[in-house]
Design a protein around this nucleic acid. Structure first.
Lengths: 373, 373
DNA sequence: AGATTTAGTTAGTAACCTTTACTAACCGCT
DNA sequence: AGCGGTTAGTAAAGGTTACTAACTAAATCT
């Protein structure tokens, strides 16, 4: 993702690159199947038993995989000696900056378990005052890192705003940041690989990791504003300027709409946002706001779903606010799209919406460092 | 693409796979740089001179690359012996079914040169009568194939309608086809690799091949209806059901719109299509139709451009009809999107709109068989 | 008990790329 | 001329990777 990566569009493939890919495949397969024998892994990945023994031996020596006892007997033949992922060797630090007043970081293992979570509640004056001190993020990371029982693979950070290829935050109004070299700050402070991503993208990665069947989906994150992450063909879309998913300020509809903070009218965010939904919930009749917001979202998503032939639309955010939105968006989309012949479009809420950015940030590190999706 | 391909989501990478990838890289680099020395190729691809000599030798023995004389001297050192792509060993047959009344096929070489073009003008009664006989396509391919001066790599076919993973045309109303196993028909008749693709997708591949700088673009093909092809991160988007790009029947806008042949109202096709534009051109005041159609296209594209962070919108179709559309679409998009900080969105016509599907179908074969983009 | 089946290891081989060392061919300078 | 320096290309040897063939180990089936 960010810093230590090849810039070349295409590079020669050496046998060692193939080896790394195969090691990744073993880890992925173990995650999918759980404790497995070398022979089973060999069949699954498509190499011979000999090669698999060698691959597994390398992973064991690196501490990524460990012995997992003997399999219960079931049929003839020598009983299998199982191996499994070693959570101790697959730790990451994940950071969630998506709520500036409540910065979070955690040590996460390969199973998604949070070994240690820390929160910095900061009185951020987001409206007028100055923003969040990046030093707080560095301190938070250091503090969490100190609690890790084993070396970590890297640090994943999900932040609001646009993140460039070098891991700098171009603009993040909510944090009050402009051109903050977050990658370099954290990397220099820790000496570890650091991956900085947009928070919606991190959430998308989390969703992708937790439901590996879906390869074409959009995750819409509703918060202060609206952002989205897109997966097409199993890959996250990054975009020409690393700004994919920025749909909050797209004009939606052909009527005029209300004025937006960006200076134009009819942006998606003027119809749909957490503050707006929450205000409606307090008021007498929330249905109207939900219906209007949901339908506008459907209007914006329809061309996207059709053009990319997506199979899932996932909504992430406060579940109590988004839950009533689901049927509205589903209806709105089905009215605006030709029905798909191979199964209907699924509209649903995200699977663990509370720590979705944290889990996504952790998943990003695994994906970058080990190729594990 | 179609038939002879791995189904597995992920498979082990053998050293031989790396070799194939490297051979592809050599061909791609030759296409990018023109005649080159082995040493230059080695530096470019990132392997040693020794390996490059070996790779080139293999390509020469396969007839894909040929000796290209000696380089003009420029500086000290032994003058380079150049090698270049051998057009004779890189022939494909491309077929364009996008205009049912005018089926085309050609032998195309790596440079895009059409060595032999044949056309079947058929009086197709698209409205009521029965559709095009798939046998005509087979005969056309056979006829063109017979003129190829050397063995061809494969046959690429661009067809209207939705094409599934096995190369069958699910539905193509314009051709009067439902579930036509085009891949198998042509493959059985010729014994060659066959790639069947949607015509918009083929056109997109052509655009991608002719301007390799653009990695995030949408190509909108305006014909009888409207379709599009999307490239994200340098890859064509195929979609969950191989139906990406089908935007013709997305409802656009929040007003009602005119009834569409699909039974709903306000589809993009009701505002924008070649028949509609042509009729307007004949009438007194074409501006209105162009403006309305262009603006509607911008309404539909805006969420797509924002969400995917595209850098280019390319229009393909009759240039005289689409040329006035370009500024309308550009204006409509800039009104509806936040301006991109890294250079503006480019809206333009496709580079060779007449034989774009043919060139794309040829490019698809090269891409599939040799990995050459 | 012996055949069969499955897991895993050992030994040898083929493919791939690299490093090192070489020859060939050219320039520029004395 | 002749020599040093530079670049292109080839040859030989070595390391890595994954394969096949053949083995041992340990269970079930007959």
């Amino acid at each position: 993702m960010n810093a230590p990566r090849r810039v070349r569009t295409s590079a020669a493939v050496l046998p060692a690159d193939g080896r790394r890919q195969n090691l990744s495949l073993v880890l992925q397969t173990l995650r999918r199947l759980g404790p497995s024998s070398r022979a089973q892994l060999a069949r699954e990945v498509g190499v011979t038993k000999v090669t698999m023994s060698d691959l597994v031996a390398e992973l064991i020596s690196e501490g990524r995989v460990r012995d997992a006892g003997t399999a219960a007997q079931q049929g003839p033949g020598k009983p299998a000696t199982l191996v499994d992922l070693d959570p101790a060797g697959l730790l990451t630090v994940a950071v969630d900056l998506s709520v500036p007043a409540r910065l979070q970081a955690a040590v996460v293992d390969i199973t998604g378990e949070m070994l240690h979570l820390e929160v910095r509640e900061a009185a951020v004056d987001t409206e007028s005052g100055r923003g969040v001190d990046p030093g707080v993020v560095v301190e938070l990371v250091r503090s969490v890192l100190a609690t890790a029982p084993h070396p970590v693979l890297g640090i994943g950070i999900g932040t609001p705003g646009v993140v460039d290829a070098r891991g700098s935050v171009r603009t993040a109004p909510n944090l009050g940041w402009t051109d903050v070299a977050l990658h370099d700050l954290v990397s220099d402070a820790t000496g570890l690989p650091v991956l900085v991503t947009n928070d919606s993208d991190a959430a998308t990665q989390a969703e992708l990791s937790s439901s590996p069947g879906s390869e074409d989906l959009v995750l819409v994150q509703v918060g202060r504003g609206v952002g989205c992450g897109i997966v097409s063909g199993g890959r996250r879309v990054v975009g020409a300027h690393h700004a994919a998913g920025e749909i909050g300020h797209v004009t939606v509809g052909t009527d005029v709409g209300e004025p937006c903070s960006c200076g134009r009218r009819g942006c998606l965010e003027t119809w749909l946002s957490v503050p707006r939904l929450r205000a409606a919930l307090d008021a007498a009749d929330p249905d109207d706001v939900v219906t209007v917001g949901g339908r506008r979202l459907a209007v914006a998503l329809a061309p996207l779903v059709a053009a990319l032939d997506l199979s899932e639309v996932v909504l992430a955010g406060p579940p109590e606010l988004l839950e009533p939105l689901v049927p509205v968006v589903a209806d709105g989309l089905s009215e605006r799209l030709l029905p798909s012949p191979d199964g209907p479009l699924v509209v649903r809420l995200a699977t663990h919406p509370d720590d979705i950015v944290l889990r996504g940030a952790a998943a990003l590190v695994l994906w970058d460092r080990l190729g594990v999706v």
